[in-house]
């Protein structure tokens, strides 16, 4: 069994107060393991993004425990949580969130810069990361001059350039066409399988299902129980033909 990177146990999260109170998560148990590519799927408002925020140490659970790479997050202050993110987690956002005034290479290098990795070595690593997503030739291009797919690939390079143990991606293919979407999913799947990271992708895009090792469904703040004794519905990877 692969090493557990993130372990969430009994996670509950209530958003808002009084009449506007919403129980977004109502007791989630979930583990993410090294080398595993997991999809988190569910209808809108089911709690996908809230769970991603909790797993990404950006939202403190109302109750339950979260451990990232063996570090419990309860009681850790904002700077401490930022450090956990910095040390262990890479993020891919739906809207890319690249810095428009920095080149592709500088956007990737930024992930190293905040970790105090600087100089030529950092620049070289950023270009290598861009090479892995097939964008080395666009290293000096500004995001505004890149297509949506290219921008998302830069964002993925930024997410894994610092070798995080886990990559959390929020709807990474939502704004992309079929080809670009498949390309992005292939890169993320490779990040899990070839580079031994835990990858969790939040999506409701059925086109990405063939790439997953496991699919976790969430509904009304609860993972769907398949009755197998496991709270997560496990899908075996589909035919390799879907991936290619």
């Amino acid at each position: 069994m692969n090493e557990i990177i993130i372990e969430a146990a009994g996670i509950k999260k209530t958003l808002g107060r009084g009449a506007g109170e919403v129980k977004a998560l109502r007791g989630i148990d979930l583990t993410l393991r090294r080398g595993e590519f997991t999809l988190l799927m569910g209808p809108s408002g089911s709690g996908k993004t809230t769970l991603l925020l909790v797993l990404g140490c950006m939202l403190a659970p109302s109750s339950g425990t979260l451990t990232v790479c063996g570090t419990p997050t309860s009681g850790v202050d904002k700077e401490g949580l930022a450090q956990i993110r910095r040390d262990h987690i890479g993020f891919v956002f739906q809207s890319y969130h690249l810095f428009p005034t920095l080149t592709a290479a500088q956007n990737v290098q930024l992930a190293l810069d905040i970790r105090h990795e600087r100089g030529r070595k950092a620049g070289k690593r950023a270009r290598e990361a861009l090479n892995l997503v097939g964008l080395e030739q666009k290293a000096d291009t500004l995001p505004g001059e890149l297509s949506g797919g290219e921008q998302q690939r830069v964002a993925i390079a930024r997410a894994f350039v610092a070798n995080p143990s886990v990559i959390l991606a929020d709807e990474p293919t939502a704004a992309l066409d079929g080809n670009n979407g498949r390309s992005i999913m292939r890169i993320l799947a490779d990040a899990a399988h070839q580079r031994e990271r835990a990858v969790l992708v939040v999506t409701h895009d059925p086109r990405v299902i063939p790439f997953a090792d496991r699919i976790v469904e969430i509904e009304d703040g609860l993972l769907v129980d398949t009755g197998s004794g496991e709270p997560e519905r496990l899908h075996l990877p589909k035919a390799a033909a879907f991936r290619s």
């Binding site: 930022a82 450090q83 993110r85 910095r86 993020f91 969130h97 905040i114």
Partner: peptide, 13 residues
């Protein structure tokens, strides 16, 4: 939004 992205990426204040 850029500063929030930096923060999400784990940058210190």
């Amino acid at each position: 939004s850029e500063f929030a992205t930096l923060r999400a990426m784990g940058s210190s204040n």
